[in-house]
Design a protein around this nucleic acid. Structure first.
Lengths: 239, 239
DNA sequence: TTCAATTCCTGAACGCCGTGTAGAAGATGT
DNA sequence: ACATCTTCTACACGGCGTTCAGGAATTGAA
């Protein structure tokens, strides 16, 4: 046993973690190169000079590996969105929304396969585990959006169609509790709005990534920009 | 040769068309039961009491079959949307938009695998042909949305963020020509708005179908309704 | 240093898959 | 009745995820 960083970690464990990491990065490279379908245990093993069966020492099944990949990729997306948001001062809630949304789109364009992995059918026969594959990252994304909406709520609240139609019980208990704790006084309708904002940011990007916009519109960025301008204005803010 | 419906059609051709149709419907049934991945030539052949190779007499390759399925499914979606729209009188453009959007969501909920087939990664190694697999249906969908927006344009036009930023050359030539012919005087910004409306209708439905909304919100229909109310209001209309 | 235990990996197998090819079986039109 | 054209079977090839018995290497202790 060697103790590095005051954590007992054997050489075996180090090598094991390293191999597990190598499997993941090769899988991501394969995905980036040939689409999610290119992620096959045999291809990964071939790339590593191993046999396919050897991977089963690190991931119980192929779906477990995919789930881990989704977690990693989703986390990187949320990291990018949060970083972009935090580069805009608190005093500009509209700008923070814009920054978040643009970061999501740019990340998606830079990692289209990652976007498919998170928001589409990831891989041939993949069945996500209960509760979704990357619950934590998704909660972070939701929390981020709720925060953006919370900052706009003083003006946005009165503009909503039917703010009285929601109760906290309409939402995931964890999300509801976290929101109530982090933004006391914020009504449940704000969470509904946050989810709607999510959908609004998602729609055009999903269409674009899956190629439904490419032939029809030559400048999807302009469409997205206008959509966000409209969104921000509908929240009573300015960009 | 027998002439039915004043069209010369041999018994061979009839049987052939019938078998091709049976292949399609079995493929759709397999998809509905086990997801798009369940569409395998061998499974279809098994279901039909045939060998996989026999299907190659009807579809040159598996991707050809998938492409045909996408066309069928997409057409059924657009049919549903158009029918719902036409059930609302012309004088109620907001209601027509609402009807279209609700029809899309309900169709998607009733045919989630079909939605995945159209808007997601359809099937393991599927590569869509150039121009998209179901160009005609997609054009019909776009035309429908443009028509909905055109009806709202008298009021919606002045509410758009940056209507001067688009030219006809920014869009697919076919779509542009068709729009200019069908709605003379309509500016290209209206097409941009139609595509944005498409994205807005798509976002929440895509999130819901792919399971990202299910755990977070217990009533996605309410979210969608509010989103559409907001959309229709943003066009200067009422539902 | 020696030795048993643990861990990691190979190699082969099983049953799926899409895709070709060769040839049999059958319907068709003359 | 016969030649043609279609449709289907049978088999092969390589790829996939997964399992399993066994070999090889590393490990911690004797």
């Amino acid at each position: 046993m060697s103790t590095v960083n005051s954590v007992a970690v054997s050489r075996r464990e180090r090598l094991r973690a390293q191999t597990a990491q190598e499997i993941k990065s090769i899988a991501l490279a394969l995905m980036a190169g040939g689409g999610p379908d290119a992620i096959s245990l045999r291809a990964i093993a071939r790339e590593m000079g191993m046999t396919a069966g050897a991977i089963y020492s690190y991931y119980a099944t192929r779906d477990d590996l995919i789930t881990t990949l989704i977690e990693d990729v989703y986390t990187s997306l949320v990291d990018a969105a949060e970083a972009a948001r935090d580069a805009v001062p608190d005093g500009d809630p509209g700008g923070r929304i814009l920054a978040w949304a643009q970061a999501v789109r740019e990340w998606a364009l830079a990692n289209p396969e990652g976007f498919r992995l998170i928001y589409g059918d990831p891989v041939p026969g993949y069945q996500p585990p209960e509760g979704g594959p990357a619950q934590e990252a998704e909660h972070r994304a939701c929390a981020g959006l709720t925060g953006l909406v919370a900052a706009a709520w003083p003006r946005a609240g009165s503009l909503q169609p039917d703010g009285r139609g929601y109760a906290w019980s309409d939402f995931d208990p964890g999300l509801a509790a976290q929101t109530q704790q982090e933004f006391p006084g914020l009504p449940p309708a704000a969470v509904a709005l946050a989810l709607r904002v999510w959908g609004r940011m998602h729609g055009l990007v999903a269409l674009e990534i899956y190629g439904h916009l490419r032939t029809l519109a030559h400048d999807p960025a302009a469409l997205y920009r206008d959509e966000l301008t409209d969104l921000i204005r509908s929240l009573g803010l300015t960009a």
